[in-house]
Simulated scan of single mutants.
Amino acid sequence: MKQVKLKTKVATRKMVAAAMFACLAFVLNICVYFPSMAPFQHFVDVLAAVFLGPWYGCASALLCGILRMMSGRTIQAVTGAVFGPILGGLLYRKTKNIWLVFAGEIVGTGFFGAMASYPLMKWFYGLDAQSPFYYIPFYLPSAVVGAAMGVATLLVFQRTGLVDRMQNELNR
Rank of each mutant, 00 (worst) to 15 (best):
L120I: 09
F83R: 09
A114N: 09
C58T: 15
F133G: 02
L63C: 13
I86W: 00
G72L: 00
Y135G: 03
S117D: 07
K94A: 09
L120Y: 09
P85H: 10
F133Q: 02
M70T: 07
A59D: 06
D128H: 11
G113P: 10
A129L: 13
V107I: 15
F83N: 03
R73T: 10
G65M: 02
M69R: 05
I66D: 04
Y125R: 07
A77F: 02
Y125L: 15
F124H: 01
R73C: 09
F138P: 01
A103L: 15
N97W: 11
A129E: 12
V144M: 15
S71K: 13
R68Q: 08
T95L: 12
L120T: 03
A129D: 11
S117T: 14
Y92M: 04
M70A: 14
S142Q: 05
K96T: 12
V78N: 01
Q76C: 15
Y92S: 08
L90G: 08
I86R: 08
T74R: 03
T95Y: 12
V107W: 09
A147R: 04
L67Y: 11
A143I: 07
L100S: 08
M70I: 13
I75T: 14
A103M: 14
L140K: 12
V78P: 00
D128N: 15
T109S: 05
G84V: 02
I136S: 09
M115F: 15
P137M: 03
Y118K: 01
G65W: 01
N97C: 12
F111G: 06
G80Q: 01
T109G: 00
L140Q: 11
A147M: 04
W123K: 14
G84D: 01
S117K: 02
G88Y: 04
A114R: 07
P137W: 07
Q130D: 14
M121E: 08
A129W: 10
Q130A: 15
G88F: 07
F102Q: 07
Y134I: 09
R93I: 01
G104M: 06
S142N: 08
I66S: 03
M121W: 13
F111R: 08
K96C: 08
P119Q: 02
I106H: 08
G104N: 06
L87R: 03
F124C: 12
Y92W: 00
A103T: 14
S131F: 07
F102C: 02
G72H: 08
K96R: 15
A148K: 06
A103E: 09
R68W: 03
F111P: 02
F102T: 07
R73V: 05
Q76P: 05
D128T: 10
N97Q: 14
G65I: 04
Y125G: 07
T79N: 06
G80I: 07
A103W: 10
N97L: 11
F102H: 11
P137Y: 10
I136L: 14
W123S: 15
F111V: 15
F102N: 09
I98S: 00
V78D: 09
Y139D: 00
Y118G: 01
A116Y: 04
T95F: 11
G80P: 01
E105T: 11
V82Q: 06
W99G: 10
G146S: 13
S117F: 12
